[in-house]
Write a protein that binds this DNA or RNA. Structure first.
Lengths: 180, 180
DNA sequence: GCGAATTAGTTACAATTGTAACCATACTTA
DNA sequence: TAAGTATGGTTACAATTGTAACTAATTCGC
């Protein structure tokens, strides 16, 4: 990417994290604006539904594991889906903390209407690529995701040779972190 | 991606928009947590700095064009950078709405410290891929981005063959939209 | 040259989201 | 079995972010 650039210049348009972020946001916005308006569904809600459609009866914690969402986001999504009648919750007899989640008929109906649309969107998007390019993208994304979440993936955030490390600066640090 | 799937089933882990979103968020979080803590800099602020480092004197509107941020985000980022002494603003004589932005010495200093780190992070991330795979990813991302922002790119959001279009549902629609 | 539409940029408010603190239940182990 | 710890899940609060409304300056059309 920027590999061909001088080491002291960074062109945003060539910077992988930036490009990933912009593309992901563009795509997500396009999809979300479609199904959120049509079905009053947020992205976290959609994710929860997608997981439960394939694996009914999961607990919220299990949904968390499968969606790259944190448990608060799942909790909120579940609450809204329950309120909207798309989801049913049953307390399990064994563990009274855990609960079992599954789509209602209404929830399955919404899901069935969205899936073809989502797949069609993906298909159209991929018309921009040849089959070979699609395969290559698929492999690259998979490797990058595996790499970032490898337990030893901290080789990524390890120390850096940024020389000018004189002062420590910024005692009031501590921002946030989503896109780049 | 899901192309090999049945048309009524969607596996989140194979769905391109989902995968892009997760990867972008992971990468962004990793980068942001580094430079935001070290330099008290948010991502929008970093983006603005990166653009102005290469093209000093741009107006906020021009920064908007180059960063895939909207003008409110730019306005807020600029305000914080000004307050932090990283940016200087000069009203131009010709158009008294427009103003010219450029990094201060302090701003350039911060920028120069972050750039090597960011490029190093990108380099490490790309060690997960072979040079050929990196090239392929580069090409794929470029094509997808061009495709999504093509003026006729509305071929993406065009009508969809989702048959069961009985009721209209959801009069209270209108959520939001970022990730998928 | 004057009113209508545009553009640059900011402000205000609502909706999302992250972080931490918090119950309640279950497990561990001494 | 009681104290301590871990887990499932929710609530509360602060920080971000999006949307719309708004001010000020400029340009366009006539």
């Amino acid at each position: 990417m920027n590999s061909s650039q001088r080491q002291d210049q960074l062109e945003l348009e060539r910077f992988l994290p930036y490009r990933l972020s912009v593309l992901a946001n563009t795509v997500s916005a396009a999809i979300a604006s479609a199904y959120s308006e049509r079905h009053d569904l947020s992205i976290p809600e959609w994710r929860v539904m997608a997981v439960l459609a394939r694996e009914p009866g999961l607990s919220a914690a299990e949904v968390t594991l499968r969606t790259a969402m944190d448990k608060v986001a799942v909790s909120r999504a579940v609450a809204r889906l329950l309120a909207g009648g798309r989801l049913r919750r049953r307390r399990t007899s064994h563990d009274r903390r855990r609960s079992s989640l599954e789509l209602t008929a209404s929830g399955r109906d919404v899901y069935r209407r969205i899936v073809p649309w989502a797949l069609e969107y993906e298909r159209r998007l991929l018309t921009a690529l040849s089959p070979a390019e699609t395969t290559a993208l698929d492999a690259a994304l998979r490797k990058l995701m595996d790499f970032t979440k490898a337990p030893d993936g901290d080789q990524l955030s390890a120390g850096v040779p940024s020389r000018p490390r004189r002062s420590m600066r910024s005692p009031n640090a501590g921002r946030r972190g989503q896109e780049v």
